[in-house]
């Protein structure tokens, strides 16, 4: 058995490239992308010696972190659902490991999205939390992912654990498209529709955003692969330990039997 496949060797490289792309995107976002006009001030006021009629939001820069991270969390959940279906079709435990790992990555990125989103909410809308449709559905998504892990720890039998987790992983994924589409379904939402054909993003905003998006996707994917490798190796070590233990027991039994036969022949 080869210790590292081709994809395992590519993964660290992908991680580095992802980190570089994300860093470049952040630099571009702060240095190149123009400030975005936020809420209007009401009447023209003098801010910083310039007459302005609406506030320019520096906090909007969170967009370049927040949205890519959120997209990666959705992608990770899609992986969870995909491998859950594969598990139910084949009952092979490697698919269960994969869907569990994907959910772990999803949880990491969901928490990053919640943290960055919360800061953004505070500075743009003036409140820490509001029960707005997108926030609510995303919060629910986080609870579901946490519930997935609580469910896993509450079941002992490995096969039953994997099956139930797979079923729950599939139904959890129903909330992901709802969360993604909610800004279109409920027009009162304060979240803007970012992805549409008439998107008004200028190239100066679009380029750093896309760089951050691909960077984050690479980071997410390589984290997933690294974690998967770690879990697989841990499982293999556990298996080897078990085998070693059995072998040792068999040998000691054999030795004891030989000693007994020797004792009998001596007599």
């Amino acid at each position: 058995m080869r210790s590292s496949s081709l994809s395992d060797r590519i993964v660290p490289l992908a991680l580095v490239v992802g980190a570089l792309l994300t860093t470049a995107a952040f630099l571009l976002a702060f240095l190149v992308a123009p400030l975005v006009a936020g809420a209007s001030v009401g009447s023209t006021e003098i801010i910083g010696g310039i007459a302005v009629s609406n506030k320019l939001l520096l906090s909007q820069k969170i967009f370049f972190f927040h949205v890519p991270v959120a997209i990666v969390s959705f992608a990770a959940l899609a992986f969870t659902a995909f491998y859950s279906i594969r598990y139910l079709m084949t009952k092979e435990s490697r698919f269960d490991t994969r869907s569990r790992t994907a959910t772990e990555i999803a949880l990491v990125f969901i928490i990053a999205t919640m943290a960055s989103g919360d800061l953004w909410t505070r500075f743009d809308w003036g409140v820490w939390w509001v029960w707005e449709p997108r926030l609510t559905t995303y919060f629910i998504l986080m609870l579901l992912v946490i519930a997935y892990f609580i469910l896993r720890t509450a079941i002992d039998a490995p096969e039953r654990k994997a099956t139930f987790a797979a079923v729950f992983g599939i139904i959890t994924f129903v909330d992901a498209p709802i969360c993604f589409m909610i800004t279109r379904l409920v027009p009162s939402s304060i979240h803007p529709v970012v992805f549409s054909t008439e998107s008004s993003m200028s190239p100066l905003v679009l380029v750093p955003f896309l760089l951050a998006l691909f960077g984050m996707l690479l980071v997410g994917f390589s984290l997933y692969r690294l974690r998967l490798r770690q879990v697989t190796l841990t499982n293999r070590i556990e298996f080897l330990k078990l085998q070693l233990e059995e072998k040792r027991q068999a040998e000691s039994r054999k030795k004891r039997m030989m000693e007994e036969t020797k004792a009998i022949t001596v007599e």
Partner: peptide, 10 residues
Amino acid sequence: AVLFIPLIFP
């Protein structure tokens, strides 16, 4: 409750 309430939310 942990599974049901988030799932029923929408």
